[in-house]
Design a protein around this nucleic acid. Structure first.
Length: 560
RNA sequence: UGGGGUGUGGUGUAACAGGCAACACAGCAGAUUCUGGUUCUGUUAUUCAGGGUUCGAUUCCUUGCACCCCAACCA
């Protein structure tokens, strides 16, 4: 059983994939377990892939087997090396190490030999028709297809044509190789599927060696078999391809046992889209800034935003595997992120919407060092010192001239604790010509040094602060959901109709001096605000990973 | 329209060779707290519908219904 570092304290849920593997092992169908993660290198990995990666690698690990990373690079038009590198990088970041990194294109020669094998056995033929004609002849749901006039060519002619296709004698799309199965079959996949198409294209790995390229169906199962994969796990939409997967394998002289394909549901999240095309459109339309824009669900974006890989994995392990099409609430993912970060992130004080606070009875020019815990959840993280003076910044939200019921923070007459320092009581405030609060006035109680009152009196709230003279400037980028609807596009069919175009807010904040020492990528908790990740490249820029749960916001919402 | 898949609280996932429907998130109520965070306690709420078999059905049978996938030379 895979150990999940911060999963809730519950036994690992059963899932049907595990059951399938266990049964196969018990029945002796397989003596070992091998899986693979087979991305097409035509885009970046996203959160949905993280689940697939977790399942593929997780099942192998759990049964003491191996999992390889195989690039499904059968279509040279869309695939690029850039994506290959990024995918390998993302998988390692998640914490998985492929037993090997291989490519479907490694098997092009074997695939071709097997194609000749099928031709020789009268199970494949060369069709000279164009794609429109072939599609029309395929028929429809409930309507049988029509056989191609080229279907009954002799083996010799087919072989000759196939070899000439490979040799480059024909232009793109002039001919295809098709499996000869059954044009009346109720499963559309069996109506003489295309195995090879002609594409005079440069391939990212094989260069110009080939001008015919295998289709997914012709390449996938065979690649599995060549590698010795036992359990080929894929998503639900390949369910209707499984009979074809098995058919190809059954008609070939395999080097190993026939692998078993098992389908499971993809991971979908509320308020999130994962379609590569739509993601690209967000970038092209300038709605987000690139593939690593923290609002995107790509692994690169989540990484930049500060999502810990361990938390993503714990989430993936926890949600389980099923065949039901479903959509998880993004709140659950965020719970896992907070759960991890609460244990690991150092606490710092930062004020994102600063208002000045002046302590009117503070001795002129006095500076005190205040000791603060780096993480109350983990005392081993120690403490740090912060400068405290009579001129501070506090959060604008932490003062209200006229406070509603249940508001525990500063308001004229009220007393609060400044974290780790003193109790202060609000005596008044100043405004500009427009009535905006420019400065909050307080007196402090010298007896409450360290944040405790000797007379035992309590305050309702503790607020964070930064000394104006010692503050460092930071830029915080606050993100909200890119899509307002739980299911983007559910109403109109177009996810972009649910786009929240103001999903990023950039604010200039003030932070305690210790924040100048964060390392790129480090995630800290800004106390009472949320978790923030230091940008990898831009000094002083922080991305809000996720906010803290905010009971006060709930109280206000309920009041309305 | 033919074939395939799937239906369990608000969400997601378990259980079930027929025996008190559970876990997590979310919600609600309270306790603790130098973060309105964390933690803790309590609590609301579930088997797609009809029929059948049975002492007993989420589970077995049956008839419906709903949703998803398949008619690329994409994967």
């Amino acid at each position: 059983m895979t150990e999940t570092p911060n999963a809730p304290d519950t036994p690992a849920a059963a899932n049907f994939v595990r059951d399938v593997v266990t049964a196969d092992l018990a029945a002796g169908t397989f003596q070992r377990v091998q899986t693979r993660f087979p991305p097409e290198p035509n885009g970046y990995l996203h959160i949905g892939h993280a689940k697939a990666v977790s399942v593929d690698f997780g099942i192998a690990e759990e049964f003491g087997g191996v999992c390889m990373l195989r690039f499904d690079d059968t279509n040279p038009i869309t695939e690029e090396t850039e994506y290959v590198d990024a995918i390998v990088d993302d998988i390692r970041w998640l914490g998985f190490e492929p037993a090997a990194v291989v490519y479907a294109s490694d098997y092009f020669e074997q695939l071709y030999q097997w194609a000749e094998h099928l031709v020789e056995h009268g199970l494949a033929y060369v069709d000279d028709q164009d794609s429109e004609t072939i599609r029309a002849q395929r028929g429809g749901y409930g309507k049988p297809g029509v056989e191609s006039p080229f279907r009954s060519r002799s083996v010799a002619e087919n072989l000759d044509l196939l070899r000439r296709m490979r040799a480059g004698e024909f232009p793109d799309s002039a001919r295809v190789l098709r499996a000869k199965i059954d044009m009346q079959h109720e499963n559309m996949q069996f109506r003489d599927p295309v195995m090879y198409r002609i594409r005079h294209e440069h391939h990212h790995r094989t260069g110009d060696d080939w001008c015919i390229y295998p289709t997914y169906d012709w390449a996938h199962g065979q690649s599995d078999a060549i590698e010795g994969v036992t359990h080929s796990l894929c998503s639900l939409e390949f369910d209707s391809h499984r009979p074809l997967y098995d058919w190809y394998l059954a008609h070939l002289p395999l080097p190993s046992d026939q692998p078993r394909q098992t389908e499971f549901a993809r991971l979908e999240l509320t308020h999130t889209i994962t379609s590569k095309r739509k993601l690209l459109q967000l970038i092209n339309d300038g709605i987000v800034e690139g593939w690593d824009d923290p609002r995107l669900p790509t692994l690169r974006a989540l990484r930049r935003r500060g999502y810990p890989a361990t938390a993503i994995r714990a989430f993936c392990d926890f949600i389980g595997v099923a065949k039901t099409n479903s959509r998880h609430q993004i709140e659950l993912l965020e719970w896992f992120i907070r759960n991890e970060l609460n244990r690991t992130a150092l606490r710092r004080m930062a004020v994102l919407r600063p208002v000045r606070l002046r302590i009117t009875n503070w001795p002129e020019g006095r500076v005190e060092q205040v000791e603060l815990s780096n993480n109350p959840e983990n005392p081993a993280d120690g403490t740090r010192l912060a400068e405290f003076t009579g001129e501070l910044y506090i959060e604008a939200d932490d003062f209200m001239a006229e406070a509603p019921p249940k508001y525990y923070r500063l308001t004229p007459g009220a007393e609060v604790r400044l974290r780790g320092a003193y109790f202060v009581r609000c005596t008044g405030y100043e405004t500009d010509a427009d009535g905006n609060v420019t400065e909050v006035l307080c007196t402090y109680d010298p007896e409450t040094q360290g944040g405790q009152a000797p007379d035992g009196r309590k305050v309702k709230a503790t607020i964070h602060w930064v000394s104006t003279a010692h503050a460092v400037d930071i830029e915080a980028r606050l993100y909200s959901r890119l899509f307002t609807a739980e299911v983007p596009g559910e109403r109109t069919g177009d996810p972009f109709d649910d786009l929240y175009r103001d999903s990023r807010t950039v604010v200039a904040g003030k932070a305690e001096a210790a924040l100048a020492e964060v390392t790129p990528g480090q995630v800290v908790q800004f106390e009472r605000l949320g978790y923030f990740a230091a940008d990898h490249d831009l000094p002083g820029v922080f991305h809000r990973t996720v906010g803290l749960k905010d009971e006060w916001a709930n109280v206000q919402k309920r009041a309305r």
